[in-house]
Amino acid sequence: MVEQTLALLALEPPGWGGNLLRGLWASLVIAGGAFGIGLVIGTFGAFGKLYGGPVARDLLAVYTTVVRAVPELVLILILYFAVTDAVNQLLVSFGYQRIQISGFAAGIAVLGVVQGAYATEVIRGAILAVPPGQIEAARAYGMPPGMTARRVTLPLALSSAIPGLANLWLIATKDTALLAIVGFAELTLTTRQAAGATRAYFTFFLAAGALYLLVTLVSGWGFRLLERRARRGLPSAGGAR
C-alpha cells in the first residue's frame, strides 16, 4: 500500500509527483503575479478613494462593490472572454492575425483585477490608520504628494496593512484553483488528471491538499517575520503579538 502510493507520487514519469510540483509552481507564479497586480491596483485605488475627486471615488466604489459581490468564477469567465475578444478585435482592426491568449496571462490579469478590489479596501484602511499628524507634518515641510506617499504614508501604513495583505495572498494562492475550471493546468487540475488516470483519488487529492497547506503555513510564517520587521520601532499595540 505504502509502496504503491510512493510509486504513484514518484518524481519520475511513471509517478505523478513531478507533474504535481510543476502544477504547484504554476499556481505560485499565477498567485504571485495576481498579488502583485492587486497591490498596484490596490495602492492607486486606495489613494483614489481617499484623496481622489468625486467621480473617481464613485467609480472606485462601483469597482470594489461589483468585484466583491460577483463570484470569482463568473468574473474569470466574463473577463477571460471579454479580454480575449477585445484584444482580438483590436488586432484585427489594425490588420494583424487573431491570437489565442494564453490561460496563464489571462489568469494572472483576471485574478489581479479581483485581488485589486480587496487590496484597495485593505490599503485604504491601513492609510486611515496612519496618524494624521505624520501626513500633515510631511505636507508642512512642503513635500509633494508623491513623495509624501512614498516616504511617509505607505511605509507607516505597511505595518497595519500586512495582516490584511497576508490574508489576500492566501486567498490568491487558493483562487488559482479556480483556473482549473477554464482548463489551465495548475495544481488542482493536474491533480485531477493524475487522480483520474490512476483512479487513486484520495492519494492525489490529499497530496495536493498537503502542498497547499504547506504553502499556507510557510507564507504565514514569512508574513509574521515581515510584520515584525515592519513594526520595529513602533510601540507594540494590542494587535502585535
Binding site: L170, K174, D175, T176, A177, L178, A180, I181, T188, T191, R192, A195, G196, R199, Y201, F202, F205, L206, A208, G209, Y212, L213, V215, T216, L217
Partner: peptide, 22 residues
Amino acid sequence: TVIRGTPLLLQIWLLYYGLGSL
C-alpha cells in the same frame, strides 16, 4: 487550519471523487 489552508474546489473534488469512488 486545514479547511482554511486548502482550496474549496480541491475539498469538493476530494469528497465527490474520493468518497464517490470509495
